[in-house]
Amino acid sequence: MKKTILAAVIGIAWAGASLAADPAIGVWKTQPDDGAYAYVEMVPCGAAICGTIQRTFRDEGEYMSENLGKKLVIDMVPDGNGDYAGKVWRPSNNKIYNGKMSVSGNNLKLSGCVAGGLICSKQSWQRVQ
């Protein structure tokens, strides 16, 4: 019994450490969409990665969007090679899409698709921190 508990604790700690080292973790600047962009904080959410809108900007500067604190990237599950699959919420039309994400250094590519992936919208994000 003690060995089983110890193995479970070690497994949980290992999973937590691997998520902490996940390249998607951090704050990312979105590409402008309908004249606005945001800073999205990516954090572990269970075995996946989720991204919440932390700050919002327009040409005139930072503003208090009604979308602050809302989840934009939903349950992106990593495949271990820098690619992820999950859901993406688009604030401008309030729709959730099947999403894919890939991280390469300080660049993150995000896509949301409908019709089984036949129609997709893509963005490139830059790491802020």
Rank of each mutant, 00 (worst) to 15 (best):
M1A: 07
M1H: 07
K2M: 11
K2H: 11
T4V: 15
I5Y: 11
A7N: 08
V9C: 15
V9I: 15
G11Y: 00
G11S: 11
I12S: 01
I12V: 13
A13Y: 00
A13C: 10
W14F: 11
A15W: 01
A15Q: 05
G16C: 08
A17W: 06
A17F: 04
S18C: 12
A20G: 08
A21R: 08
P23T: 00
P23S: 01
P23A: 00
I25D: 07
I25W: 02
G26M: 09
V27M: 03
W28F: 10
W28S: 09
K29D: 15
Q31C: 09
Q31N: 13
P32V: 05
P32G: 08
D34N: 10
D34S: 14
G35P: 04
G35W: 03
Y37S: 14
A38M: 10
A38P: 08
V40K: 14
V40Y: 11
M42C: 04
M42W: 00
C45P: 06
C45W: 02
A47S: 11
A48M: 11
T52W: 08
T52N: 12
T52C: 06
T52Q: 09
T52A: 10
I53V: 14
I53F: 05
Q54H: 03
Q54A: 11
Q54R: 12
Q54N: 07
R55T: 04
T56M: 13
T56C: 08
T56E: 10
F57G: 01
R58T: 13
Y63D: 10
M64C: 03
M64R: 10
S65Y: 03
S65G: 04
E66Q: 07
E66K: 07
E66M: 06
L68K: 00
L68S: 01
L68N: 01
L68V: 00
K70Q: 14
K71F: 02
K71D: 12
L72I: 08
V73R: 02
V73F: 10
I74R: 06
I74Q: 06
D75C: 05
M76P: 01
M76L: 09
V77Q: 09
G80D: 15
G82R: 09
G82A: 02
D83I: 02
D83C: 05
Y84L: 06
A85S: 14
A85E: 12
G86R: 06
K87E: 14
V88Q: 07
V88C: 09
V88D: 07
W89S: 12
R90S: 06
P91L: 03
S92A: 14
S92P: 08
K95N: 13
I96K: 13
N98F: 13
G99R: 13
M101H: 08
V103K: 09
V103S: 08
S104M: 08
S104E: 14
S104L: 06
G105N: 10
N106C: 04
N106G: 03
N107K: 15
N107G: 12
N107C: 11
L108T: 03
L108F: 04
L110H: 05
L110Q: 05
S111T: 07
G112S: 06
C113W: 03
A115W: 06
G116R: 01
G116N: 01
G116L: 01
G117W: 03
L118F: 15
L118S: 09
L118P: 11
C120S: 02
S121H: 01
K122I: 02
Q123N: 10
S124T: 13
S124D: 11
W125P: 14
Q126H: 00
Q126I: 01
R127C: 11
V128L: 03
Q129F: 14
Q129E: 15
